[in-house]
């Protein structure tokens, strides 16, 4: 369908005045701008020497959170494995023993939880999908390994990532206060800045469920 003539706005080039048509003022103005930047001020980070400053919403290596009793928080509901676009999570669920005091109040837990860090695209969908805030992405960005097998993280390894990062300050446990899972009941939330600064007039910021991460 052709565009309606009434919808077309014809724009003509603005006429240049005398000085503009000589191009000299524009060149000098440009030179002034470029020269003013030669003042030694830089915005680069000297990465290996200086620690890198990552934004709060950075998505790095995953961890499996523990609840307040130190058990794995995951309830093996398979939501993350379903949501994962890269198919990198594989979970084998098992029923929690009924009379075991260790698993008191829990029905299911993952017997095995494997996450292939090489297949993962670090999109954070698993974190979004998780109903009990068990899987979270941390700020660890320099993950390396010598073999492919080494990069497939099992449950223990993912839990150890949690132990490593929970007190680092940049990776606090982001939680819904266990609204759905009931596996954790933190009394206080660590202070956390909003992931990005949001313009209050921004329509997309006024989502139907705003403030997932809030003070």
């Amino acid at each position: 369908m052709p565009i309606n003539e009434s919808d077309v706005t014809w724009v003509s080039e603005p006429k240049m005045n005398f000085w503009e048509s000589t191009f000299l003022p524009a060149i000098f103005q440009g030179l002034k701008v470029t020269a003013s930047h030669i003042d030694g001020h830089t915005v680069t980070q000297q990465y290996p020497e200086e620690p890198v400053k990552l934004p709060m919403h950075y998505r790095g290596v995953h961890r499996l959170n523990r609840d307040d009793q130190g058990r794995v928080k995951c309830v093996a509901c398979m939501m993350c494995a379903t949501a994962c676009p890269a198919n990198c999570i594989s979970i084998i669920a098992t029923e929690a023993p009924k009379n075991d005091p260790v698993w008191e109040g829990r029905d299911k837990y993952p017997a095995s939880f494997e996450l292939d860090e090489l297949r993962c695209i670090y999109c954070g969908m698993c974190e979004e999908a998780c109903p009990c805030d068990a899987i979270e992405l941390t700020h660890i960005y320099d993950l390396t390994g010598k073999t492919r097998e080494e990069m497939i993280f099992n449950k223990d390894k993912l839990l150890s990532v949690f132990d490593q990062t929970k007190d680092s300050g940049v990776d606090p446990v982001r939680t819904h206060r266990g609204k759905l899972s009931g596996t954790a009941d933190f009394q206080s939330l660590p202070p956390l800045a909003p992931a990005t600064s949001v313009n209050p007039d921004d329509r997309s910021a006024k989502a139907s469920s705003p403030g997932v991460i809030s003070r």
Binding site: E5, M16, F18, W19, S21, T22
Partner: peptide, 23 residues
């Protein structure tokens, strides 16, 4: 000379593309 060239490029009466006729 420089001013003349500048003036010609601003005040020049070269046939302009007529935009009103174009649509």
């Amino acid at each position: 000379l420089f001013a003349t060239v500048g003036l010609i490029s601003t005040q020049g009466s070269l046939p302009q593309r007529s935009l009103t006729a174009a649509p």
